[in-house]
Design a protein around this nucleic acid. Structure first.
Lengths: 244, 244
DNA sequence: CAGTGGTCTAGACCACGCT
DNA sequence: GCGTGGTCTAGACCACTGT
């Protein structure tokens, strides 16, 4: 590679470096979830660039949901609030069209296990690494509709007590208790047939069709933090995707 | 509503008006799919605003996939090309992880029908309006994997000849032959059990689980142009969603 | 090398929310 | 009224592409 090609490839706009610098400060905890960032001009002074460049970085961070901005108020580090989670990470809607919000969660089981080959692969761990396995169900108006298996690398959640109860919104809990902010995820959606386990958990008849949604979720810093399998009663809920 | 409140609510940034103005020119056909738009400075002169404002409008139009920009070359009206369609409107992936591209389509039936209550409702038509119904299947390496029912308001496709053959990518065809550019869509995903029709079309055993994806697609100008039901062999394909 | 989009800066002014 | 983000402008310069 010639020097010219190097400099071509090495070019990175200033606003992207600023974006990374701000992200790093958030990851480092300099500004926590919900905290207000310095104003555009203060950040510009702090980082020795113009206000316009800071603005472009903050627009990008708003886009990727790292911060949010309110005119007349300020720029804040995003939180995994319930409202935000519904919008970004919960795309199930009732088939009848009535919005019932986030179904309530009920813990069935939680235990520390050794990663099976499948789980290790999905979480990019080594077989046998410690993994926290959570089984719970979600109910809509007392009727079970989703069975969730959730796998967490034990490494990131060393403080988690197996005997504690869990809140309805885990992502908020990860953030509050473990300083892990879920920021990106990928869902794979398949159709499956309900088995005996599904029957026991969410009272669907074996043979009924279910959506199986497997999710790999990443934290702000890009670390793979959660693997989740949701089995969803298709007679109650569907998965909605907006494309453009 | 007081005058003050009126003026508050009436405020609309200049760049949004510019965005709309450019969109309107594209809808009107002043610039067609693939055409190069005037440069930022030319547009600024044309619309009597600064280059920076034009830039902001074009950035928004890039975001919503109305235009695309290539540094050093120009700004172009987006086309429903195969590559673009795969990226924006085809989110099925092979379960084995191997990317096989867009499965080839095979026409089974095409006819002009009167809208049933369900179809009329989904396409926001009146019961009995003329609707073109297309049935086709998609194959991956000669193996059927998706059965598609497609419903088009006859009104938008008056030139369509029932006896013509159809290309693999309908969206490109809508654009080329009917000046209809698909720009937005919403997919509803459910799990269903294969029936006799599915068995006949895509050779799955009755009782097997399928994904049923119903899509309502809109043109650039916001008109509802297509209602599509895809029944997908879940043993071959899954639906992938990226969240952030 | 000419022409295009992309970056960066500086400054003025507007809209908004809070107090 | 003050401080914040949002809009709009003007201008300089950089990076990329095609001829």
């Amino acid at each position: 590679m010639t020097p010219k090609e190097q400099s071509r490839n090495a070019f990175k706009p200033l606003y992207q470096k600023i974006e990374q610098a701000i992200t790093n400060k958030i990851i480092a905890g300099e500004w926590g979830p919900g905290d207000m960032l310095p104003s555009e001009f203060q950040l510009a002074d702090l980082l020795s660039v113009s206000q316009g460049t800071v603005r472009k970085a903050l627009e990008a961070l708003t886009q990727s949901n790292v911060v949010y901005r309110r005119q007349g108020v300020g720029t804040f580090v995003s939180e995994n609030t319930l409202k935000d989670m519904l919008f970004h990470f919960f795309h199930y809607k009732a088939n009848d069209g009535v919005d019932k919000g986030l179904p309530s969660a009920e813990l069935i089981d939680i235990e520390l296990i050794d990663a099976s080959p499948e789980i290790a692969s999905e979480l990019e761990l080594t077989r046998g690494d410690g993994v926290i396995k959570i089984i719970r169900i979600r109910k809509l108006a007392d009727k079970p509709c989703i069975a969730e298996q959730i796998y967490l690398p034990q490494h990131f959640f060393t403080q988690l007590d197996i005997n504690d109860s869990l809140p309805n919104s885990l992502y908020h809990y990860y953030q509050e208790s473990f300083n892990i902010t879920i920021n990106k995820a990928a869902d794979k959606i398949r159709a499956v047939i309900a088995n005996e386990s599904d029957q026991a958990l969410i009272k669907v008849r074996p043979g009924n069709p279910l959506l199986e949604v497997t999710r790999r979720a990443r934290a702000l810093d890009g670390r793979l933090v959660e693997y989740r399998i949701s089995r969803v009663d298709s007679e109650q809920l569907h998965y909605l995707v907006d494309l453009n």
